[in-house]
């Protein structure tokens, strides 16, 4: 297995941009790919700002940042990923989209290149299916925001070779991240627990058991969680919760994973959470959470 020197990241959204920061910060040559030039420009600007802030906070030296930025580039063509030793996809959460991407990358990248998927809900085995190098595809689910969160859920697909998984695991550790191994199962660990838990919270509200503020207070004071579930749902976005439910229920058929009627009603009413100014709570500011 070739030592990883160059990292490709597909998708310049919030997650992809964050993963690219992680790779560049760890000293890897990093290529961020997206078909949207504006998204690439935005990601590059966010990366420069984040790394500059890291220097201000004493987390990185200016020399480290200079090295990271010197090795960071963007591309709007897949050919720009031809030199990569690993490509991590963080594109739209759709099986066909990811399968098509890996199929195309198989023609562009060298034989040794590992493909990793940042999917949070889809099967790694299914994403890898038909791409031409199923033995070199692994799941690497970073947490949002990737540049701040250490956890990475790593999953081998049914056809992933031990060698490939070990190489991806070592790479994850070299990034400075903390990998945990999970089976290729819907939602892996985090979302498997979180999505139905949040639905249970919504059902409690719908059933009139308690108000959102009482539920959040109970969870924080009773269990020591940093954030209440209603506050978290407002941050995630209630429309995003619907998408997660649809993805999960589609593969598990577990009633707890089905979107509760109240969730659908709130989304229909435009109560999407912080992004719309109103969800389970009202927000009179557009400041980013935690700012």
């Amino acid at each position: 297995m070739t030592t990883i020197q160059t990292v490709g990241v597909c998708g310049a959204g919030t997650m992809g941009a964050g993963i690219a920061i992680v790779a560049a910060r760890a000293g890897y040559r990093t290529v961020l790919y997206d078909t949207n030039a504006k998204a690439l420009d935005r990601a590059k600007g966010q990366t420069e700002a984040f790394l500059a802030k890291s220097v201000e906070r004493g987390k990185l030296t200016q020399a480290q940042v200079d090295t990271a930025l010197a090795g960071y580039k963007t591309t709007d063509t897949l050919d720009g990923l031809a030199e990569c030793d690993i490509v991590i996809e963080a594109v739209f959460e759709n099986l066909a989209v990811k399968q098509e991407l890996f199929g195309k990358l198989n023609d562009v990248c060298p034989e040794h290149t590992l493909f990793a998927s940042n999917t949070s809900t889809l099967s790694i085995t299914q994403i890898a299916s038909g791409c031409g190098r199923e033995d070199r595809v692994v799941g690497m689910h970073f947490c949002l925001p990737a540049q701040l969160m250490k956890l990475v859920e790593m999953s081998p697909g049914l056809n992933t070779s031990d060698t490939s998984f070990a190489a991806a695991w070592a790479f994850c550790e070299a990034l400075g991240q903390k990998p945990v191994k999970t089976k290729d199962a819907p939602g892996f660990i985090l979302n498997y627990f979180l999505v139905p838990f949040n639905n249970d919270v919504i059902r409690l509200i719908e059933a009139g058991v308690a108000e959102p503020a009482d539920i959040d207070r109970a969870i924080k004071a009773g269990l020591g969680y940093k954030m209440g579930p209603c506050e978290l749902l407002d941050l995630i976005g209630l429309d995003t919760q619907v998408l997660l439910c649809d993805a999960f229920y589609g593969v598990t058929h577990d009633p707890r994973c089905a979107a509760p009627p109240l969730l659908h009603r709130m989304v229909a009413a435009g109560h999407l959470g912080r992004k719309s100014g109103r969800g389970f709570f009202s927000y009179d500011t557009d400041k980013m959470y935690g700012a």
């Binding site: 947490c143 250490k150 956890l151 945990v180 999970t182 660990i189 985090l190 969680y225 940093k226 954030m227």
Partner: peptide, 17 residues
């Protein structure tokens, strides 16, 4: 799905529990 340690670690690192 995962070891007990990895499950525990995941919710602590990923969700702040």
């Amino acid at each position: 799905l995962a070891t007990a340690d990895d499950m525990d670690l995941t919710v602590k690192l990923g969700l702040g529990y």
